[in-house]
Simulated assay, not measured.
Amino acid sequence: MALLMEKGAEPQTEKELADLDAIAALKESAAIELKEEGNKYVKMGKKHYSEAINCYTRAINQNALSDTETSIIFSNRAHVNLLLGNYGRALSDSEEAMKLSPTNVKAFYRAAKASLSLNKLVEAKTFCENGLDQNPDNEELKKLLKQIDSQISEHQQHEAQVSKALTSAKGLVSAIEDRALNIGKAMFQELTGLKKPILDKDHILHWPVLLLYAEVMSSDFIEDFCETDISAPLPWDKENAYTRDAIELYYEAGSGVRLSKREIISTFLQGTVASHLESFGDDEIDGVKSSPKGISSIGEGRSKWVKVNERRTLHAVLKEPNLIIPGIPVFFVVSKRSSFYKEFKSGNWSLPF
């Protein structure tokens, strides 16, 4: 009997040949039946999709149909996997279908759909174009190709924006390194948001500056303070305690930890389309500090209040070696006419947090 023949053995008699033909016919019939059964399960809805996949798999495993018919079954299984969100399996089935029948347009369409869902936009476009080579009038492929082209365009625009944001952040860090400034962790963002310095076309830094009135813990915010300007506060209070001749300006020295170059770039990317980046495309960034000597903090023990010489430019003040800029410059404004002035100058006052 043909069923008892050893694997690889050639049939010797007409009986064995007939048996083999009968077995092949049975397997072919079973495969076709399983395919049709699978199609019925698909029409019955999502609850029966797993049964449809099982039928298609068993039909394929019969190894009894032509390449063209088997291609259709792979394509059908790809369709069900798409419906289930099994995009990787759908793509694999579609590719098998295309190998077996390069003219199976549905397989190209489903491969494109799966690739699109996997965000493989270039591959999706190629599948669409190859499918249209087979059938130039296929409206589904035309519509899908238009959708893919639109997403590719959006992706390219997004990548261009990310690149621009990263280039800007690196430019800021380079300018800060050139000026030997120390940047620390951003503070007071509840008052300033995600404001950051801007480097203009003349390579001049424009800083957002926060002025804190230490006695009453109110604040003023200057959005654009050019580094070449004299560091003089502009606002004053209603009771005239903070008139121009009465106020003094201070910064807190020896406070904070100097950020690394990588950390500064991450800070400057906050609030941009590139905020998600973990790699900045430059191996030299890793481990490099934002200023020389590799010191992670400045000052020892208690921080100090240092009076600002208001005849100096903002740049000259910020490059003081004992000043770590907490994201953006922060200066404390006190009035010599206030009773609070003595407490502040004595060093007994500190930020209430």
Rank of each mutant, 00 (worst) to 15 (best):
K47C: 03
A316L: 07
L26I: 14
E248K: 15
A107P: 01
P321V: 11
G301R: 02
F188T: 00
T228C: 06
L4V: 12
S266W: 00
I298R: 01
K261Y: 09
R258W: 02
P321L: 04
V216G: 01
G131I: 02
T313Y: 01
E190L: 07
H79E: 09
Q156E: 15
I298D: 00
H315N: 10
E14K: 12
G301T: 04
K143V: 12
S291V: 11
E284R: 14
G327E: 02
G171N: 15
D21L: 14
I264H: 01
R337H: 12
A25H: 10
L132E: 04
S71H: 03
K293N: 14
Q12H: 07
V334I: 14
V105T: 11
D202K: 10
S296H: 08
A246I: 02
M1C: 11
V122W: 04
K307P: 05
R337F: 07
N119Q: 14
R262F: 04
P352V: 10
R89F: 14
I53R: 00
M98Y: 04
E284W: 09
E69V: 08
P102I: 11
S303V: 05
K196A: 11
S350H: 10
I265Q: 01
A97T: 07
T243F: 07
S115M: 04
Y341G: 02
K289Q: 10
P329N: 06
I72G: 00
G8C: 07
H158C: 02
I285A: 03
A18D: 08
T272V: 06
A64V: 10
I325A: 03
V308G: 00
K185N: 11
V162C: 09
I53T: 06
F108P: 00
K142C: 05
A22M: 09
E284P: 00
K35N: 13
T57C: 07
S153R: 15
A214I: 09
E123K: 14
E154R: 13
H276P: 03
I247F: 03
L181F: 05
E28W: 00
L172H: 05
S218L: 09
N61Q: 15
R311Q: 13
N348I: 10
S50F: 08
S335E: 01
L212F: 04
Q156M: 13
Q156Y: 07
E252Q: 12
E300S: 11
L234E: 14
E310K: 12
K289S: 11
A180H: 11
S219L: 02
D224A: 09
F188Q: 02
Y87G: 03
L323G: 00
A114L: 03
V288T: 13
